[in-house]
Design a protein around this nucleic acid. Structure first.
Lengths: 228, 228
DNA sequence: GCAAAAGTGTTGGTTGTACACCCATGA
DNA sequence: TCATGGGTGTACAACCAACACTTTTGC
């Protein structure tokens, strides 16, 4: 067994990376290849270097696993119980990120022997206090989508109204009325309707939309409400 | 001049302590007695000891200045820019607290040569990145009161409807219609009307109310909305 | 032709907002 | 008697929630 490494007063970042497969919200978990919590699933994370900002550290974790840059990320809480980490006093600053899971193939990095998407319904017992960290991320995401239309980060660039409704239903864990949802989200006026339609679907093809960032910026400058 | 002390990878807590004097929201600031930022105003804070939880550390800071225990506190963000602290890499976990400023006399502690309540309209340039830390606390408090009736922590045990309306007006920075406010907050059904009335006021004495914690707990178990 | 999802309006209830006057009290 | 805030109700507008049928497409 490896010699116990005793660390002092250091800090790490952990990342909850959310993706959406069209039906469910999933989280990117790694399977740990080393002690402590060897063979456990855990959230990806890393120690923060002396000369590295927290956001940068969180961004690197994300990039090493997904290859993605410039992703929506939000710091949401810091976990610092004295004994949360078996190797010493390590507080961890937690971020969550929203990514389009069809855009890349996750790659395990150094400390992980495996990596994969796990749906929120099937989260196992994770290493460290990561179950609590994940719980809080979910809670925060639920609130966030009612305040800011961040969900689009989880979808393709072009999407149907059904896809975004399914996404909101997955995040908020409740069903939303089709007609009311359409009316409401279109009234918000930041969806750009395209001429393009779905192809090769076994039903009437739905119109595609794009998120209009410029328009959104204008609108949100003077406040907005995104409840569903 | 004092020898520069170089610290490595440590963390601190900073506390934004809000009080309400009946008209304005105020913050408890200390005047620093030592370098760095000697003679600047700053938020009270302290390094976190190896064997101390973050909440405990924040609680001690609060207690050393106010003598109060069991106060409403909420962790809201962690600030970790590489160069935010001139003595080394110190990330700081920020908490805000809500206290009744008539309940105690603030006392300066070791690192402070002065202490006092400063209204939000008159915040000077603070040491470190404390202006940003304070800004974010205000933002968070504004949101918090629309989600949970925490404002009562800032008032006396018994209060009038006017007092609580003034408080909400101060936090949200907008005027609230007297009749609508009354109707709405009474409908929420967690205010206990007392027989007691104000005394020695040069106008019709207002009825006093108490916050009914037990009732609130019942109600919030099944969700609630506190917009104004 | 069938299964699957797209697209489309109306109604009733609830909630929000704006607004003005008389009352009690102490100075 | 005056100044200050306490206490009260209504009408209109906006928003929310519930609900069903026809259309298009691929198989």
């Amino acid at each position: 067994m490896k010699e116990q490494l005793k660390l002092h007063s250091v800090f790490s970042v952990d990342c909850v990376i959310f993706g959406f497969d069209g039906e469910e919200i999933k989280v990117l978990l790694i399977e740990r290849g080393e002690e402590p919590y060897k063979n456990y699933f855990a959230l990806p994370g890393d120690l923060v270097k002396e000369d590295e900002d927290l956001e940068t550290a969180a961004g690197s974790v994300l990039q090493s696993l997904t290859g993605l840059k410039d992703i929506y990320m939000e710091q949401y809480y810091t976990f610092g119980k004295v004994n949360r980490h078996p190797l010493g006093r390590i507080i961890t600053v937690a971020y969550y990120a929203l990514v389009n899971l069809h855009e890349f193939q996750p790659k395990a990095s150094s400390f992980a022997k495996g990596i994969g998407w796990v749906s929120l319904a099937n989260i196992p017992s994770l290493g460290f206090d990561h179950n609590a960290i994940l719980e809080k991320a979910i809670e925060r995401l639920k609130w966030r989508v009612t305040v800011k239309p961040v969900g689009f980060e989880l979808l393709n660039n072009k999407f149907t109204l059904r896809q975004i409704r399914k996404l909101y239903e997955a995040i908020l864990e409740k069903n939303l009325d089709k007609r009311n949802f359409r009316r409401k989200i279109l009234k918000m006026d930041f969806l750009l309707p395209l001429e393009e339609k779905q192809k090769n679907v076994a039903h009437k093809a739905a119109r595609l939309y794009q998120f209009d960032y410029a328009r959104y910026k204008e609108l949100s400058a003077k406040g907005y409400n995104f409840d569903f």
